[in-house]
Each structure stands twice: as structure tokens, then as C-alpha cells.
Computed example of a mutant assay.
Amino acid sequence: MTGFAAVLARRIGLLIALLAVVFVIVDLLPGNAARAVLGRDASAEQIAAKERELGLDRPLPDRFGEWFGGVLTGDFGTTARGQSVNELLAAKFPQTLLLASIAMLVTVVLALLLGVWWAARPTGFAARALQPGSAFVIAVPEFVVATLLVLVFSLWLDWLPAVTFTDRAGYPAAPDMLILPVLALAIPQAGWNLRVVRGAVADAASAPHVESAVLNGLPERAVLVRHILPFALPTIAMSFATSVGALFGGALVVETIFNYPGMGAMVAGSVSDRDTALVAAVVAVTGATIMVILLAADAIRVRSNRGRA
């Protein structure tokens, strides 16, 4: 088995193990889906009948095996309330993907520009401003950033909306409704990644071939593009790839704060309903997306290492 195939097999195995853990955790929560769906006034006989209908009277490994077998054919099953999980994901996942993708784009642009600036001016204004600033935004959770953004730009300045309204297609009705949720997600990740970019660029800049290029009189921009960034790219790409998972996780919280029409409210409701199939489906879709991004970063690293060899 090649190195890349081994990495792929390991990541798929980790995803399957994570899905199994999700089944166990939801099963250990107090109550179950039958009680959540029927409510407090349901009799013991009604609850027992509903448990049999949902298969909750069967062993957990059997339920997981049946659900996972359906996933392999593209069927995520139905929720405890009888809704198609596939239809729910098709309705909500694109909005979350849109939010996370824009936040990732903002993160990449800010991290590259500020990180390279910091590396090029290690003792100037960039270092004095970005070193404490990036440390601060890294330490602040997304929901705190979101609250501060609402306080400043919605309540004090009245520049941007604090609540998202949707159009007929289920997407935000106006582009400015995306600004605060995107910033709430991107600011902490940009703070982390710009430090990684700064370190990777600084390390690459100290290589002998870079010194030779400078001595040969190449312009600073040409040295950066041709001799520094290609060597710093694997580290930067892996850092950006790991941020994808943080963005998806943060999106579920940020969506709730801004009433954004993504998977946040759906996940909160599924946990409240002890709806294992829906929770696991969200983990499967987001986990598969993150795995693809990580594999792309692995491919960049492998190709870069071969180029150096």
C-alpha cells in the first residue's frame, strides 16, 4: 500500500470510528428519541411501541451496522419524526457550506497578506501589532467574537443586520447578512493561520537557495514567489486544511447566534430529540468534507517533498 493510500485508509477508519462514537454518546444521553418525540404525556405503552418502531429495542451495534450500511448506498435514513435525513441535509448543508467557504476564503486572504507582511518586517509595526493581536483573537471563542461584532456593528453603529432573514430558496435575503457571521468565523482562524504563515515563510526565507537568489539580485517579489512560498506551501496548506474542521464546528454555533439558515439549528434539535441518525449524518457529511480537504493538503505536501528531492 502506497503512503497516500495508507493515509486515505487511516482517515476513513477514523471517520467510521467517530461515527460509532457518536452513536454511543447519543445513546448514553438521558432519555431517548421515542420519549422526545411523544412528549411527557405519552404512556409507557406508547413509548414502548415507538421504541420498537424506531428500533431502539435492538442492540446498539445492530443499529449502527444497519445505518452505516444505508450510508454506503447514499441513504442516511429517517429522523425520529419520520423526515428524510437526505432531504434535510440537502436543504441545510449548502447554506453551511456557503458560510464556511466564504469564511475560509477570508481566512486565507488575511492570513497570507498579514503573515507575509509580518515575516518581511519582523521588527516593524507588523510585529508590534500582529503578535499581541493574533494571540488575542486566537484565545477568544467564535461566539464571543460574534457577540462583540453584533454589539459594535449592529447595536452601536447600526451598520449591519444582527439577524439573518431568508429568501424563498432558503438563503440569506441580502448579502450584508453574511458579513458578521463570516467575520465571526474567520477572525479567530485568520489569527492562528497568519502566525503559521509567518513562521513558515520565515523558515523558508532562511534557506541557502533563498540567500543565493537575493545575492544574485532578484527582486524581493520574485524571491518570495519563486523561492520562498513554494517551500512554505506544505505547512501553510496543512494549517488551512485543519482550519476547515474548526470553521464547520464554529459555524454550528455562529449560525444559532445570527439565526443563519444552516445546520446549526438542525443539529441542536437533533440532539434535543436524541436523534442519532441525524446527528451521525451531519458528522458524516462534515467529516467527509474535512477529510477531502486534508487529503488535498497531504497531496500538496507529498508533491512538494518529491519536488525538493
Rank of each mutant, 00 (worst) to 15 (best):
P161M: 07
I102V: 15
N216F: 11
L88E: 01
A251V: 04
F68I: 12
E45P: 04
D75L: 02
W159K: 03
G217R: 03
E142M: 07
V201Y: 11
W159P: 06
L178Q: 03
V254K: 00
M266V: 15
A297S: 04
V197S: 02
D158S: 13
L252I: 10
A126H: 09
W192I: 11
R121C: 10
P161N: 03
F231R: 14
F240V: 02
M104L: 15
V302G: 13
I187G: 01
P161T: 02
R63P: 00
P234Y: 12
L56E: 09
F23R: 11
L28K: 08
L97M: 11
T235I: 05
T79A: 06
V283Y: 03
R63H: 01
P30V: 09
F136D: 00
R303M: 13
P59N: 01
R10F: 12
T164V: 15
S206M: 13
T96I: 03
L194H: 09
T147S: 15
L29Q: 12
V152Y: 09
W192D: 10
P30I: 02
K92S: 07
F231L: 11
V109L: 08
A33D: 02
F23N: 09
E87V: 11
G217E: 06
I236D: 10
V21Q: 09
L194A: 11
E211H: 14
T79G: 03
V214K: 13
M238C: 07
A299Q: 10
L180R: 05
V302C: 05
G245I: 03
G250F: 00
A309L: 13
G191E: 08
F93D: 07
G13P: 04
P234Q: 03
A48E: 14
L18W: 01
K92Q: 08
R221Q: 10
A222I: 10
